[in-house]
Design a protein around this nucleic acid. Structure first.
Length: 289
DNA sequence: AACACCCCCTGTCGGC
DNA sequence: TGCCGACAGGGGGTGT
């Protein structure tokens, strides 16, 4: 599920239970997810307090009271579940564990937070806050699309000289961080731009932004903001931390809508599917140029 | 440097 | 019904 709006939704769901709480017990139920857990993972977390729960791109960042950061990435299929008010009730004493529940955080708030991830493309790291920006996973991460920086001018600067198609450039986390396959397709449709158009085409010769760059920057922000407001998208029954469903999937205009009529008012096109960089692209060949 | 691929892993779905 | 391939929200690593 998780692109920026979904990760932000997870962050908001976990924040009340985590912030200010201490880890009273950490159950690590296997040695690795995508990567091995950090050495002594459970021991190093136990007793620590969470000072703040943040997000960078698609990463969740729990700032701990000893200067470390618990970094969590959901990969393709990761999710968190919060069971509130269960002091002393440990999952391994009950039959509450589900398949693919890999980590359980028991917190002094009384909440138990369970990480579930069938495909195990997610991972957790424990890194000092002071050097996190230098970590190889974070060193080259691009701009936050919902921060104040992303406008047509910046988009043009990022894309200038790039021969890659817009689809690939928007997916490139070293340029803009947090967009994934769904929201790239949606933003391009809103902007009326072909996913195949050269990214460099959005910069003028003098490096300034074209009208298309201004429009695309607006559409990227708009679709992400709407999705965050809707609690993200719930595909394949994916749920928010509190068990509720995000509903932005009902607002998809092109994603997973191959052969449906283009929803743009007045457009007579049909949504097509193609493959770019090994991922499905959904678009309307009539109104997206 | 800037691609294009392949891979990690499990579950689901459509076609035969 | 069962089997098999294709595909799924990500992204690190390798090779050209």
């Amino acid at each position: 599920m998780p692109e920026l709006p979904e990760v932000e939704t997870v962050r908001r769901g976990l924040e009340p239970a985590m912030t200010g709480a201490r880890f009273t017990k950490v159950e690590q139920r296997r040695a690795d997810l995508r990567f091995p857990f950090p050495p002594d993972f459970a021991e190093r977390l136990t007793g620590r307090r969470v000072d703040a729960l943040g997000r960078r791109a698609k990463y969740l960042l729990a700032d701990l009271d000893n200067g470390d950061v618990l970094v969590m990435h959901l990969g393709m299929s990761g999710s968190f579940r919060v069971d509130a008010d269960m002091p002393g009730v440990f999952h391994h004493d009950r039959s509450k564990l589900a398949a693919h529940d890999h980590v359980v955080f028991h917190l002094s708030s009384g909440a138990a937070i369970t990480y579930n991830d069938p495909r195990r493309f997610g991972f957790m790291l424990l890194e000092p806050r002071a050097t996190l920006a230098d970590h190889r996973f974070f060193r080259d991460i691009g701009v936050e699309p919902l921060g104040n920086e992303l406008d047509g001018a910046l988009l043009a600067r990022l894309f200038a000289g790039k021969a890659a198609p817009l689809k690939a450039a928007l997916l490139d986390q070293t340029l803009i961080a947090g967009l994934g396959n769904i929201y790239v397709c949606e933003a391009l449709h809103r902007a009326g731009l072909s996913p195949r158009r050269e990214a460099g085409d959005l910069a003028r010769k003098d490096g300034g932004p074209t009208k298309r760059a201004e429009l695309l920057a607006r559409c990227v922000r708009e679709v992400l903001e709407e999705a965050v407001a809707a609690g993200g998208s719930s595909l394949r029954d994916h749920r928010q931390a509190d068990g509720s469903l995000g509903y932005f999937q009902h607002n998809f205009r092109v994603y997973d809508r191959e052969n449906e009529p283009c929803p743009k008012p007045g457009c007579r096109g049909t949504i097509a599917r193609t493959v770019q960089s090994g991922r499905s692209t959904f678009y309307c060949g009539v109104c997206q140029r």
